[in-house]
Simulated scan of single mutants.
Amino acid sequence: MFLGGTNWFSGPSFLKKDEGAPPQEKIFGLVEPDLDTDVRPDSEEPFLVADLQSVIDRHQQWLTLLPRVKPFYAVKCNNTPAVLRVLRALSTGFDCASKRVQTMTFDSEEELRKISLCHPKARLVLRIAVDDSDSLLRLSAKFGAGLGLVEKLLGLAVDLDLTVIGVSFHVGSGCTGSQAFQKAIADARQVFDIASVLGVQISLLDIGGGSNFTSNCEESGPGGQMMYYINDGVYGSLSCIVNDPAHPPIQLLPHRAVGVGEVRYCSVVWGPTCDSFDKVSDSAMIPELQVGDWLLVHHMGAYSVSLSTDFNGFERAKVFPVVTEETRRLLELRHTSVKKQPGDTSVGQKEYCAL
């Protein structure tokens, strides 16, 4: 971010790739070799670095911890092409809204009747309302059928000759208790039992999202208060501050080593627009910054790109995907081994070399 000059960058683990280089060279060493870009250390434009290795590592962690649960990536939260290509290479499923999908949810009679008219061959999943009281962003007030309606809805699906294949629920975003999932799965079990009695053979359980695997920490210091203006804010890549209550608190980190005894100041940090609503933080504990310093913001994946705007004439931050050379080669091999469909030009070695 630009501190009236201060630039910023977001990405979880890229600094480990070249520990010996000076701070700014570590960033630009990642984006310069293979990308045609005008971003330089003296640039005043914000940009994002997408750490594709982080995507791969988390996918592997999911498969290790939940081997029976196939992940479906929510495209709406970050549709960066390179991220989608990597997930496709990993054979991940995709959760999206499109006229061409063949599997969809329903939670009311009206939806079933519309589906019977517009897409009678669709594979349907009954979404149920569950207890989401432990979540920061609750969804069951808007989506999901109560258990008392399940038998009626499944019966109507049978009468309309529609195919119901499963049950889904969502405990809400930022769920803080595992009991919510336990109770929701128990409710889903009841739906399976009701379906069995009606002769409806369902085999899929969609457990939605909402898991909160992050932890928060606080810092304090003896310094006074400072105020900074940077070149990205809540109308840009940091929209999660106001739009996503489940997002962990934003941490602004200087792109340099901070001494153990270095004074940290309680700092007010503003975004670049004319709107006083554009405040990134009113209590960031950071050491004193100078014009031209860089700030890092980690874990800015979901919704940071898809909800950003160009309000007030400030362009959206560019995204530069990065990945280790070893993983890059593996992706290229896997991609080129996939048999192409007629007319499909989206998969190939040349495309993956550029990521």
Results as ranks from 00 to 15, higher is better:
L154Y: 01
P23Y: 05
V268Y: 12
S13I: 10
A82I: 01
S98L: 04
L253M: 15
T103N: 12
Q251M: 13
P71D: 02
G155C: 02
E32H: 11
E25D: 14
P67L: 11
I241L: 15
V323R: 00
V258E: 01
A184R: 03
W270P: 00
D310V: 11
G224W: 05
S178R: 06
L252S: 00
P81N: 07
E45R: 15
R189T: 11
G5T: 10
V31M: 14
R334A: 14
F9P: 00
K279S: 11
F320P: 12
V130N: 13
I27N: 01
L15G: 01
K16P: 03
A317C: 13
L87I: 03
C175I: 14
P33G: 07
S196A: 12
T273F: 05
L160E: 03
Q349D: 05
D275R: 06
N216M: 03
D18F: 06
A257M: 03
S43P: 13
S304I: 10
E325Y: 08
P67V: 13
Y228I: 15
D134C: 06
P12S: 12
P22Y: 04
T80R: 06
I128Q: 08
R138Y: 03
G301V: 00
D95C: 08
C77V: 11
F72Q: 00
F169L: 13
G236K: 09
K152W: 05
R138L: 06
P23L: 04
L35P: 00
F2I: 13
W8R: 02
S43D: 15
S98E: 09
V263H: 04
H335V: 11
R334E: 12
T327Y: 13
L117Y: 10
T327E: 15
E45H: 11
R85K: 12
V280W: 00
A180I: 03
A184L: 01
V125I: 14
G223W: 10
T327L: 13
G148C: 08
E219K: 04
A195I: 00
T37A: 13
S178V: 08
T336S: 09
A354D: 04
K142F: 08
L136S: 05
R100Q: 14
V258M: 00
K16I: 07
S133L: 00
K279R: 15
A145C: 15
L126K: 05
